[in-house]
């Protein structure tokens, strides 16, 4: 029921995303041009500019929502979120290194694979530090350290680049944007994102068992090492590919599972698909918002997600304080 409503919401936002843009094309003409009718520049705008933007919004949002829900399930910690604890920042570092060294230009999957490597390093490190007995505090401290370190290295690499435009790109990598992406980006990111979703989907039963505690999960026949491996690679693939094409977008993986837990319950198996849809809806809505607020400027996505996410984050901390750490 909830999944059906969420799916309808995503479809509605996907269509709205196709219809919103600085050029102000009438909806009828826009949809006709999308399937190839019409002449002049309209079909190109719809098929080569707006369609990839909407598709990437869908994929990036689903990846971030899913990764957030899975990490929160595994760490049994409501603050685990790819953007907040440095996974996105590390993926951005991988992507920046791939672009600056020419790896991204050398072969098509170079960019998302480098971002995957960065994300995998960060997820593995965080699971090692906060996985078994670490509390909320350990996770957040480790996350801040990874986040700051990866962000500093990204800025350093871009400042060292002799290309005069590189330093201005720091903003994109810190805040994310879907402006003027192409179908090439969709083809490059989609395979890894889908693979990441599949890997995370396999963890659903294990995560459900894990809500009873690690010992109980093991007696139920859950292989915790296999579960962790699936989660590290799945999260890294989904977040890495998403970050490689859209930059580091924060708060989606935090807000979406938090909101949906009230609707579908705390069971990770049910939260995972709902969070994927919720994440897609949030990014599509945020991307529509940046185009409605400042249609002719490239307002970054992370600005909108943080405006929604940061107050919720404070609310979470507030309720954690009341219930004790």
């Amino acid at each position: 029921m909830t999944l059906g409503v969420l799916a309808l919401l995503v479809i509605g936002l996907f269509l709205s995303s196709l219809l919103v843009g600085p050029a102000g094309i009438p909806p009828g003409a826009a949809l006709a041009a999308l399937v190839g009718a019409g002449d002049g520049p309209l079909p190109i705008v719809m098929q080569e500019i707006r369609l990839p933007r909407a598709l990437l919004g869908l994929g990036v949002g689903a990846s971030l929502g899913l990764a957030g829900a899975a990490m929160q399930g595994y760490l049994r910690n409501p603050l685990a979120e790819p953007g907040l604890i440095g996974v996105s920042a590390a993926a951005a570092l991988g992507a920046v290194l791939a672009i600056q060294t020419g790896l991204a230009a050398a072969f098509a999957l170079g960019l998302p694979l480098a971002a995957l490597a960065g994300a995998a390093g960060a997820v593995a490190l965080l699971f090692l530090l906060a996985g078994r007995e670490g509390g909320t505090l350990t996770l957040i401290l480790a996350g801040i350290a990874v986040s700051a370190f990866a962000g500093a290295l990204t800025s350093l690499v871009l400042n060292l680049s002799p290309n005069p435009y590189a330093a201005a790109e720091i903003v994109f990598w810190l805040l994310g944007s879907l402006a003027d992406r192409s179908m090439t980006h969709v083809w490059v990111a989609a395979p890894l994102m889908v693979a990441g979703w599949a890997l995370i989907a396999f963890t659903a039963r294990g995560l459900d068992a894990l809500t009873l505690g690690e010992d109980a999960a093991e007696t139920l026949g859950v292989d915790l090492r296999r579960l962790r491996l699936l989660l590290v690679t799945g999260t890294a693939a989904a977040v890495g590919a998403a970050t490689a094409v859209a930059g580091a977008i924060g708060f989606v993986g935090l807000v979406v599972p938090h909101l949906l837990r009230r609707l579908v319950g705390a069971s990770p198996a049910r939260l995972l698909p709902a969070s994927a849809l919720g994440g897609a809806a949030m990014i599509l809505a945020a991307d529509i918002a940046v185009r409605v607020i400042l249609p002719e400027r490239d307002l970054k996505l992370g600005v909108v997600t943080a405006l929604v996410g940061a107050p919720l984050f404070l609310h979470l901390i507030w309720s954690l304080r009341r219930t004790g750490p």
Binding site: P22, P41, I99, Q100, P162, N163, A166, F172, D180
Partner: peptide, 26 residues
């Protein structure tokens, strides 16, 4: 200038710089 507006304006010619020595996302 969003790419969409550039394409909709249908210029006869788009004048751009060459590829840089060091790659950049921009």
């Amino acid at each position: 200038l969003p790419l969409e507006l550039l394409v909709m304006a249908e210029p006869d010619l788009i004048v751009t710089p060459g590829a840089p020595e060091t790659p950049s996302r921009s």
